[in-house]
């Protein structure tokens, strides 16, 4: 996307994973493409580009949103957290560790969307019930795992979170 296409570009500034990033993007650039191709953060994946699969979910000012249904220019000045920003000071987050421990991923393509969604969910609800966990991940498609171990991983992440904050 380095090449000029003649389209008018908007200078935007995003705080991505705590780092101030600048980009010049056409108005129609989807946030997913901006993150992946303008900023080189390819951890956010694109599975459907119509908002159904959830693979592209990132945190916008802390709340999970579909980056394929958001224009980059719209979120100028806002904070974005992607999967690359979930580990703190090089240490995997409880959610990341739980997904690995519980075999909550196979091909890993949908995983960044799940991780971002679950991170925000467990921040707001530290002791979720089974139904709440199901509802929380109900907008993310996975074609590999049959969701069994993803559900398990969310509960495990809550457990790790509790252990480590307790």
């Amino acid at each position: 996307m380095s090449e000029r296409t003649g389209e008018h570009r908007h200078a935007i500034t995003l705080t991505v994973n705590g780092v101030l990033r600048e980009a010049a993007v056409p108005a129609r650039r989807l946030l997913s493409d901006c993150l992946r191709h303008d900023l080189g953060l390819t951890g956010t994946h694109v599975g459907c580009e119509h908002g159904v699969c959830g693979a592209c979910t990132v945190l916008l000012d802390g709340e999970p949103v579909r980056s394929c249904l958001t224009f980059a220019v719209t979120v100028d000045g806002h904070e974005i957290t992607t999967v690359e920003g979930l580990a703190e000071r090089g240490e995997l987050s409880p959610v990341q560790r739980a997904f690995s421990e519980c075999h909550g991923l196979q091909c890993g393509f949908c995983t960044p969307g799940f991780l971002c969604t679950v991170t925000a969910f467990l921040r707001d609800n530290r002791t979720p019930t089974d139904e709440e966990v199901l509802e929380a991940v109900s907008g993310n498609l996975c074609r590999c795992t049959g969701y069994q171990n993803i559900i398990k991983a969310v509960h495990r992440a809550a457990e790790i979170q509790a252990e480590e904050s307790g």
């Binding site: 390819t42 951890g43 992607t82 690359e84 991923l105 960044p112």
Partner: peptide
């Protein structure tokens, strides 16, 4: 495989 896939490094 997981280490890279859960950190966006796949």
């Amino acid at each position: 495989e997981d280490a890279r896939l859960i950190t966006g490094q796949g």
